[in-house]
C-alpha cells in the first residue's frame, strides 16, 4: 500500500491511498451527521409513527431493522465481489482494502438479520428457528462470510491473502444464487409453504416509507463504518511495510539506519 510512487496508480485520483485518506477526512463528519439524522427519523417513523399490521400486530416493527439488515448482508457481499474483481482484474490498490473492511460488516449485518428474524419468528411461528428457505440461506451466507474472514487470518502475507479471498469471493458469487435456488427447492419439497411470508408482497405506504428511510439510514451507516475500517486497514498496511523496512535496515547491518533512514543513499535496502 505504500507504492504511491508508481505512476500507474495516478491514473484515477482515488487510487492513491493518501489522496483517498484526505478525501475521507473531509467527508467523514458530514456523513456521520447525515447518518445519525436519517436513522433517527427512521427510528421515529418505525417505532412510533407507523401503524401496526392487522395480522402481525406490533411485531411488524421488527421488519424495519430486519429487512435493511438483510439488504446490507447482500449489499456487502456484492461490494466484496466488485472489490474482488478490482483486486484480480484491475489490480486496484484499494480494492483489497475495501473487501477486507466489508467482510466483518457483512457478517455482522447477516447476524443481525438472523437474530431479528428469530425474534420475529418466535411470536409468529412459535419457534425460534425454522428451516425456512430464507433463514437457511442467510445462515449459509453467514458461514461463508466467516469462512472468508478465517481465510484472511490464516494466510500471513496480506497480498496473497487478499488474492485468495478474492478468488473465493468470486466463486461464492457464482454459487450463492445456486445455493439460494437449491435451498428454495429443498424447502418446498420438505414443508408446506409457511402460513404467511415475513414480508408481504403488497405493503402500504405507511410501512413502505419508514422501511425505505431505515434502509437508507442503514446503508449510510454501512458506508461510514466501511470508510473508517478502510482507513484503519490502510494505516495497518502502512505500519506493516514501515516495520518490515525498519527491520530490513537493521538486518542489513546498519544498526543506526532506523534513525538515519532520512538520507536516501544510506543503505542498500533503501533502493528496494
Amino acid at each position: 500500500m505504500t507504492e504511491t510512487k508508481q505512476p500507474s496508480f495516478r491514473i484515477r485520483g482515488l487510487a492513491n491511498p493518501t489522496r483517498f485518506l484526505a478525501l475521507l477526512d473531509k467527508i467523514m463528519i458530514p456523513l456521520v451527521i447525515l447518518t445519525v439524522v436519517v436513522i433517527g427519523v427512521g427510528l421515529y417513523m418505525a417505532l412510533i409513527d407507523s401503524p401496526e399490521d392487522y395480522q402481525q400486530g406490533a411485531t411488524v416493527r421488527i421488519m424495519y431493522i430486519h429487512v435493511p439488515a438483510a439488504w446490507l448482508a447482500m449489499f456487502a457481499y456484492t461490494m466484496m465481489t466488485i472489490s474482488a474483481l478490482g483486486t484480480l482484474v484491475w489490480k486496484h490498490p484499494l480494492a483489497d482494502v475495501s473487501a477486507k473492511a466489508a467482510a466483518p460488516l457483512g457478517a455482522a449485518f447477516t447476524f443481525v438479520c438472523l437474530t431479528t428474524g428469530s425474534f420475529w419468528g418466535k411470536p409468529m411461528w412459535g419457534t425460534w428457528w425454522v428451516w425456512d428457505a430464507r433463514l437457511t440461506s442467510m445462515l449459509i451466507l453467514l458461514i461463508i462470510y466467516l469462512g472468508l474472514i478465517a481465510l484472511w487470518h490464516a494466510i500471513e502475507d496480506p497480498i496473497k491473502a487478499g488474492k485468495a479471498v478474492a478468488i473465493l469471493t468470486l466463486v461464492g458469487f457464482i454459487i450463492i444464487p445456486i445455493i439460494k435456488f437449491s435451498v428454495d427447492w429443498w424447502s418446498t419439497l420438505h414443508q408446506p409453504a409457511s402460513v404467511f411470508t415475513l414480508e408481504g408482497p403488497k405493503m402500504d405506504n405507511s410501512m413502505l416509507i419508514p422501511l425505505m428511510v431505515m434502509a437508507i439510514g442503514f446503508t449510510l451507516l454501512f458506508t461510514v463504518l466501511h470508510f473508517k475500517a478502510m482507513k484503519n486497514e490502510i494505516l495497518r498496511r502502512r505500519i506493516r511495510s514501515m516495520q518490515m523496512q525498519a527491520a530490513r535496515q537493521v538486518a542489513s547491518g546498519n544498526r543506526a539506519a532506523a534513525t538515519q533512514a532520512a538520507s536516501p543513499s544510506t543503505g542498500p535496502s533503501a533502493s528496494h
Partner: peptide
C-alpha cells in the same frame, strides 16, 4: 488450492468448501 500454502489447511478447507457443496448434497 487456496489453502496450499498453509501447513494445516484441512479444517479450513472443509469450512470454506462445505457451504459450496450444499446444492450438490440437496439434489
Amino acid at each position: 488450492a487456496l489453502t496450499v500454502i498453509l501447513r494445516r489447511g484441512g479444517l479450513l478447507l472443509s469450512i470454506l468448501i462445505l457451504p459450496l457443496t450444499i446444492p450438490v448434497l440437496i439434489f
